[in-house]
Structures are given as structure tokens and as C-alpha cells.
């Protein structure tokens, strides 16, 4: 009832449009894509189109988030995600504060919950957090009223990366229905892979994963009710056969010490995305990588910089996607 009243106070010429939007967006936080309906993902992608137009202007700034405070809180290092969020917030005229664990009271022993209480008291409207523990942003939402955006938690989820991947794929392929997507690399430790599996399958793409069995998450090979169905292809050539979208993941080199890989050389030999292997995919297949790239390890330099690579577009689209998400989150009433 309250919302209906507010609408009536608006200029009526804009009313039909607003009414058309109400049922779609329900999120106060962005934690993972597992609770996103296809219509919500579509709304994010459409809003991103509008934000991309803003980015194409000579003055890339719109006033919509004036007076809102966005705080980025990073417990893990990051170049592109963090700068992408900060640029996105600034393009929307929000005030941005960036905190990193190394330079904050965390080194004095302040707990996550205490830090969040401080951010809340400072007047944060949206907190963008990256944390090395899976689930940390979920705990955080119980201790503050601000909106939480998960910028990567442990091995669990990286929803904004998945959304920018989806946007980049949609730009090239027009849609998702019937697309064959292959994710190659360290699936087990990859939050990017998990969020992408949720997003891609929700939008109707068929997803295969390709990796050594030691890097396959436990239980992915059995049919589960709580996780989308993916195909497991241990062999890279057959995985790539007929693929429309090839997603490579960063191999965290420290994994080799943990005994999961016999050697990096063997991994390179069996799983590196090379031009010869990429030729098995469709001629118009696109190659994605969430960055930063280990050159000539998970992907050959020739492919990473080749004509099918959309790695740099992913970075540009990341700003637009994050603008769309901040816009959608900030619009909700508290």
C-alpha cells in the first residue's frame, strides 16, 4: 500500500514504465547467482546496455547515486574487480571509500563483524566485499542494513564476474539458449566457475567442465538436486568439440605445491588452451578468461591475444555491469 501511494505522487507520465518493472528485481544483496531468476539476469543485462551507453559518452558520469556511499572492503588483493567497482560507483556519482585488510584495523585484530558495524556507522549504503572465506558475505548481511555485494568469497561465488561474462557472451552470441559453453581449468578452487555454472544454466546454455580429476569439485559428477547439471569432460579436445563459448580459468600456481598436480608442465601439456585445440570449437567461438592470465600456462599467449579472445571486452563490460548492479541495489527503499 505504501508503495502504491508513493507511485501516485510521481509524475504520471513515467508511471506506466515503473509499474512494468516492479515484480522483477527483488534483491537487496548480490551474493551469488543461485537465487537469480532468468528474468532478473535479463534485467541486469538490459540495464547494463544503458550503462554501456553512458560509458561511451565524453563525460562518463550520471547523477543517479548522488549522496550514496559505496565502501569496498577487500580482504584479498585485486586489481580489476576493485577498480571496476570503484569506477562504476564514481560514474554514478556515489561517494567511494576503499578499505583493504592490510591497511585497516584488521591488522590490529578487529573482527569482520566489528568492521562492518563501523562501516554501517559511517553511513555505508552499499558494501562491496571480497573475502577469502566462503560464505563471509552471507554472515555479513546478518550484521548490517547496508546492501552487500559479494566481490568473491573463497571458492564459493563471484556473481559480478559471472554477470559480466554473461553480458559479454550475449553481446557476441545474441542469447544463451542452446549455447555450448566449456569451462576449462581449476574448477575446484574457482568461484568464477561456480557462479558461471549457475548463470549459464539458468539462461539455458549447456555447460561442460574440463579439468584433471584432482581439480574437480567433489560431487560434481553425481546428479544433484541443489546444483545445476554440468557435463564432465576430462579430455580437452572432446570438451572443445563444437563449443560456442570457451572459458579458461586462472591456474593458481600455488596449487602445485599442494600435490593436486604432478607438475605445471604436465598441466600445460594436457589442458592449455592452444590455437590447435581451439580449432576444435566452432569457428566463431569466443574465449573468456577472468584474469589475471598466467601467460602460456592455462592459455597460450597467441589465443589470449588472438581474434577470438574477448578478455579485454570482459574488463570494459565489468564496469558497465557493476554500474547496473549498484543502480538496481540503490533504488530499493530500506
Amino acid at each position: 500500500m505504501r508503495e502504491v501511494k508513493q507511485k501516485d505522487e510521481l509524475a504520471p507520465e513515467v508511471r506506466p514504465e515503473i509499474l512494468a518493472t516492479t515484480p522483477v528485481w527483488q534483491h537487496r544483496h548480490i551474493l551469488d547467482l543461485d537465487d537469480f531468476a532468468p528474468a532478473e539476469i535479463e534485467l541486469v543485462l538490459e540495464t547494463t546496455d544503458a550503462m554501456k551507453e553512458v560509458l561511451s559518452r565524453p563525460i562518463k558520469k550520471v547523477p543517479v547515486l548522488r549522496g550514496k556511499t559505496v565502501i569496498t572492503l577487500f580482504y584479498e588483493p585485486s586489481t580489476r574487480t576493485r577498480s571496476s567497482f570503484e569506477l562504476a560507483a564514481k560514474n554514478l556519482s556515489a561517494d567511494v571509500i576503499s578499505l583493504s585488510a592490510q591497511a585497516s584495523s584488521t591488522v590490529k585484530g578487529e573482527s569482520l563483524v566489528d568492521t562492518l558495524a563501523t562501516l554501517e556507522a559511517l553511513g555505508a549504503d552499499i558494501v562491496v566485499m571480497r573475502h577469502s572465506y566462503s560464505g563471509a558475505p552471507y554472515i555479513a548481511t546478518r550484521h548490517m542494513r547496508a546492501s552487500m555485494v559479494n566481490a568473491g568469497d573463497g571458492w564459493h561465488a563471484h556473481p559480478t564476474q559471472a554477470l559480466l561474462d554473461l553480458y559479454t557472451i550475449r553481446e557476441h552470441k545474441g542469447g544463451f539458449k542452446g549455447l555450448k559453453a566449456v569451462i576449462i581449468g581449476d574448477i575446484k578452487h574457482s568461484r568464477v566457475a561456480r557462479s558461471n555454472i549457475w548463470g549459464l544454466t539458468a539462461m539455458g546454455a549447456e555447460v561442460s567442465v574440463c579439468c584433471p580429476f584432482t581439480l574437480l569439485p567433489a560431487g560434481l559428477d553425481v546428479v544433484q538436486h541443489h546444483f545445476p547439471k554440468v557435463h564432465i569432460e576430462p579430455e580437452i579436445e572432446s570438451a572443445l568439440c563444437g563449443a560456442d563459448v570457451v572459458m579458461t580459468l586462472r591456474l593458481q600456481l600455488e596449487r602445485q605445491q599442494s600435490g593436486l598436480l604432478p607438475s605445471i608442465r604436465e598441466y600445460v601439456k594436457l589442458y592449455q588452451l592452444t590455437e590447435a585445440r581451439l580449432a576444435k570449437a566452432k569457428a566463431d567461438a569466443i574465449v573468456l578468461h577472468p584474469g589475471p592470465v598466467n601467460e602460456d600456462i592455462e592459455i597460450s599467449l597467441a589465443v589470449a591475444q588472438g581474434p577470438q579472445s574477448v578478455i579485454n571486452e570482459q574488463i570494459t563490460n565489468g564496469v558497465a555491469v557493476r554500474m547496473a548492479l549498484l543502480y538496481l541495489l540503490a533504488g530499493g527503499s530500506r
Binding site: 508503495e3 515503473i18 528485481w25 534485467l43 538490459e46 546496455d49 543502480y327 533504488g331 530499493g332
Partner: peptide, 9 residues
């Protein structure tokens, strides 16, 4: 507003 108008290009 309490809700988000859809932004188009």
C-alpha cells in the same frame, strides 16, 4: 521511489 525504473539506452 522504492523501486527501480528500468533504464534503457
Amino acid at each position: 521511489l522504492g523501486l527501480q525504473p528500468i533504464v534503457k539506452s
